[in-house]
């Protein structure tokens, strides 16, 4: 009996497991994870969850208040907009758009940022100088301005908005990866890999990059939060998702005219944006504490 009860030394665990359990103990991260999971599940199962078709116009149900209002009905729990479209259904379907934006635009930034940053940090010299100057130029535009300008030229659409946001986020990834790669390059295992004749790309992508993942994961999560905000802002300005696509920012823009008559039409999409962004920010902050103590502010 006593023999079997030998306690495992926590330090024997795989470092990844150790980090995961640390993350699990971090309450902010768990809350963030729960919020994001809810939104992702909502996005995946949107057609099953939403009580109505988000695009269905119903002239009999124009501007219905939410259910707790004295004139509200259970048919439209969060009320309807000026075309009689169900707000709850539109918000549920809006989760699809926002999650897609978060994944695709940050995906673009991640791929190009990691590629440029690692080349920059690994090869150094003039390659590094050129890439970093280009990043400086992208950073010379205040946030949102570059995205607005890119969409203004390419034409307003959700795809262009995602691309524009992706481009503006490249430098944050490139800078982080470059810094980590520069640091890792000095370590012995790189020298060891080189001495056994490993090719450059192999050292870079199979040996160095996996060791730079911590700060990258943190940056990815936090960037998803700001991507959702920026995409909503672009749609609000009429430069992102076009009507009648159910998108949270676009819904707020459409309901501006109803601000006095039916403020709820504008209120709920805003709360949805706020909650989704809070979810990603919480997870990002928690991950930062767990994975990358250097970045802690």
């Amino acid at each position: 009996m006593t023999k079997e009860k030998v306690q495992k030394n926590p330090f024997d665990r795989h470092p990844m497991l150790e980090q995961l359990s640390q993350l699990w103990r971090n309450k902010t991260a768990v809350v963030g994870l729960v919020i994001i999971t809810v939104f992702i599940l909502t996005a995946i199962f949107a057609p099953l969850l939403s009580p109505h078709d988000p695009l269905e116009v119903s002239l009999y149900d124009q501007i219905k208040p939410p259910v707790w209002h004295e004139k509200g009905t259970w048919k439209n729990i969060l009320g309807t907009d000026d075309l009689g479209r169900d707000t709850l259904s539109r918000i549920i379907h809006g989760a699809r758009v926002s999650m897609a934006v978060a994944i695709i635009s940050v995906g673009i930034a991640f791929v190009f940022g990691v590629l440029l940053g690692s080349i920059s940090g690994y090869y150094k010299g003039w390659v590094d100088s050129i890439i970093m100057r280009i990043m400086d130029i992208i950073l010379a535009f205040p946030y949102l301005l570059l995205a607005i300008v890119v969409v203004a030229y390419l034409g307003p659409s959700l795809e262009n908005a995602m691309m524009a946001i992706g481009i503006t986020y490249i430098p944050r990834f490139a800078r982080i990866v470059r810094g980590s790669v520069l640091e890792e390059c000095e370590k012995d295992y790189v020298m060891a890999a080189r001495s056994i004749g490993a090719k450059n790309w192999r050292i870079l992508f199979l040996a160095i990059l996996p060791n730079c993942m911590g700060p990258l994961i943190v940056q990815t999560t936090l960037s998803m939060a700001s991507a959702i905000l920026d995409a909503a802002a672009l749609s609000f300005l009429g430069l992102g998702a076009q009507p009648p696509t159910p998108e949270w920012g676009g819904m707020i823009a459409m309901s501006r005219g109803l601000i006095l008559r039916a403020s709820w039409v504008m209120t709920f999409p805003g709360i949805a944006i706020l909650l989704a962004v809070i979810g990603f920010n919480l997870l990002g902050d928690g991950l930062r504490d767990a994975l990358d103590p250097r970045l802690r502010d």
């Binding site: 905000l229 802002a233 707020i252 209120t267 805003g270 706020l274 962004v277 920010n281």
Partner: peptide, 12 residues
């Protein structure tokens, strides 16, 4: 605050 869609907050 950092998660706030300010265009929405402005309208509110």
């Amino acid at each position: 605050g950092v998660s706030m869609p300010i265009f929405w907050l402005g309208l509110i």
